[in-house]
Design a protein around this nucleic acid. Structure first.
Lengths: 242, 242
DNA sequence: TCTACTACGGGTACGCTGTACACAGGATTA
DNA sequence: TAATCCTGTGTACAGCGTACCCGTAGTAGA
């Protein structure tokens, strides 16, 4: 589990730094483990990321990865961090453009790797290099504006919360719909899954029914995402006159 | 898994309706299963909700619950629904008060049963009686206002997304902090977990560091929640002049 | 009242999981 | 050359979800 059996405990991220310094020499490395696990998750979902499958994918014994990772939770933290490293913060500019762009890029990242939404919450909370950097970027967007320290943090967290909530909802809904045989398309905008018909037709949900028959942008997830995003940004802007 | 071995497949929710009609007679019922599982989760977290532990808690063989629930996923959907049934929508009033109150009540519910945040996303997406009803309530808050069907849905979903994101962040952060030996309190507002010191002190994260030293409301989660909530509501209101 | 049926819960078993622990061999250092 | 350690191997265990089959108690039809 440690780079040196005898050394005092070293954090995952220090271990990760180590293996880009010490060139290769071993068949395994934190980087290779992360890359393989991410490929596995991209291909078959987070459920396929098993210590054993990871091992066979690297042609190695089941327990081998445990030299680099304390337990599976740490593996998940690792891939959570590495996948966020893909995201390059937009060039600096007016705060609103920057924050908006960051949100859009984040959404695109998560849609590219939908399994991120399935990571255990703690794997997304524990500080990690790339997420700390993104967080720092978020805060930096508000530098020099008339917000105090608490307000800046609240603004960044509100953005994070909205984006995470919206995207995870979006992914779950998409997976549920395909799993349920939901049909959609231009000519079928008002079509509903069998499992939802009862909701609409019982008469107990008149407003939902209304939506089902009148809505025109049911498939336009990007529009829906931006609606909430812009609303939130408007609210923050108004609050501080920025 | 079915109430009648020979009958055509019946949905979880129809089965659930059945057992409040047919009084008791059996030692098990969908309701009892849900109640026991929720108690287990409240006491020891979602990880303790195991088909076997659930069975022993009900003094029954490990496989017994499968007469009432197709698989574990359905069990999770069931308890996800039952716990949301606790939430009583606020009395109707001006849209903004209603929506605000619903958000606050939802947050309180989730803080009371933090394991909700650990439910697999699909268990929170699949339509279910109590969540459909809450959704309907959300939509009804915007009835009669100058929003079209798509905008109403977008507004409700934005609220949902923010609340879910914020609360799950809040819970994960709290669990991470206690798990890490983080100290806090009036006299220790600026104290940091050992695991975070490096983030603050490397010099690579000046804005985060700034926050760590200057922020005064680090422990005020309610304030933080309401900051984002009000910002979002402001944005929605402004967008439609309501 | 006898008979047939069936819903319900019990029991056993399988393949999979995460991971503890002891060990072997090549590389590195003294 | 000898001692050390770093790395990957092998085996094993407890616990998971759940497929499948069976006994039985209670009901329904005659």
């Amino acid at each position: 589990m440690a780079k040196q059996d005898k050394e005092a405990e070293i954090s995952l991220w220090e271990r990760f730094d180590l293996d880009r310094v010490t060139p290769v020499r071993n068949s395994l490395s934190t980087g290779k483990i992360a890359k393989t696990a991410i490929a596995l998750a991209d291909a078959e979902g987070l459920g396929a990321v098993t210590m054993r499958r990871l091992a066979t994918a690297m042609d190695v014994a089941p327990m081998a990865a445990y030299r680099y990772v304390k337990n599976k939770d740490e593996l998940l933290q690792l891939i959570g961090d590495r996948v966020y490293a893909e995201l390059e913060p937009p060039a600096s500019g007016p705060w609103r453009e920057s924050v908006h762009a960051l949100a859009v890029l984040t959404r695109e990242l998560v849609l590219r790797h939908p399994w991120i939404a399935d990571l255990p919450p703690v794997a997304v909370i524990a500080p990690s290099p790339s997420r700390s950097a993104l967080f720092e970027y978020g805060l930096s967007c508000f530098a020099g504006l008339p917000l105090d320290a608490d307000e800046k943090m609240a603004a960044v967290r509100a953005m994070n919360s909205y984006v995470r909530g919206a995207v995870s909802h979006e992914i779950a809904l998409a997976e549920f719909m395909t799993g349920e045989g939901w049909t959609h398309g231009d000519d079928l905008r008002t079509a509903l899954a069998p499992s939802m018909t009862y909701v609409v037709e019982t008469g107990s949900y008149p407003h939902t029914r209304d939506w089902a028959y009148k809505a025109k942008r049911k498939d336009d997830r990007t529009w829906e995402f931006e609606y909430g995003l812009d609303a939130l940004l408007d609210g923050i802007a108004a609050r501080h006159g920025i």
